[in-house]
Amino acid sequence: MPATVLVLVETINDYLPILEHQGFHLILAPTPSERAQAIATHGGQIKAVLTRGPLGLYAEEITALPQLQIICVIGAGFEHVDLQAASNRGITVTNGAGVNASSVADHAMALLLALVRDIPRADAAVRRGEWPKIMRPSLAGKHLGVLGLGAVGMAIAQRATLGFDMSVSYHNRQHRSDVPYRYCSTPTELARASDFLVIATPGGIGTRHLINKQALDALGPNGFLVNIARASVVVTADLITALEQRRIAGAALDVFDAEPQVPDALKTLSNVILTPHVAGLSPEATQATVELVGKNLQAFFVGRPVLTPVALPPPTQSEHAS
Rank of each mutant, 00 (worst) to 15 (best):
V5A: 10
I12E: 13
Y15S: 08
P17Y: 12
G23C: 10
L26W: 08
L26C: 10
A36W: 01
Q37D: 14
A40K: 08
Q45I: 14
I46H: 04
T51G: 08
T51L: 09
P54N: 05
Y58M: 14
Q67F: 02
C72W: 01
A76D: 02
A76P: 00
E79L: 06
H80D: 03
V81A: 06
V99W: 01
V99Q: 05
V99H: 03
V104G: 03
A105S: 14
D106A: 08
A108P: 09
L112F: 11
I119V: 15
R121I: 10
A122L: 15
D123T: 13
V126C: 02
R127S: 04
G129T: 02
K133H: 06
M135H: 09
L147F: 13
G148T: 05
G150P: 06
G150A: 07
G153D: 09
A155S: 15
A157W: 02
T161N: 07
G163M: 09
G163A: 11
D165A: 15
Y170N: 00
N172S: 14
R173I: 06
R176F: 07
R176D: 06
V179N: 12
P180T: 02
T186I: 12
T186N: 11
T188R: 07
D195Q: 13
D195L: 13
L197E: 04
I199F: 09
H209R: 13
I211K: 07
A215I: 11
A218C: 11
G223Q: 13
V226F: 02
I228W: 07
A229G: 15
S232C: 05
A237L: 08
I240M: 01
E244A: 13
A249W: 06
A251N: 13
D254P: 02
V255Q: 06
E259C: 02
V262D: 02
P263C: 07
P263E: 08
D264M: 01
T268K: 11
S270H: 13
N271I: 12
P276Q: 04
V278P: 00
A285Y: 08
T286Y: 00
T286C: 00
A288W: 00
F301G: 01
R304F: 01
P309F: 10
L312S: 04
P314Y: 10
T316C: 05
A321F: 04
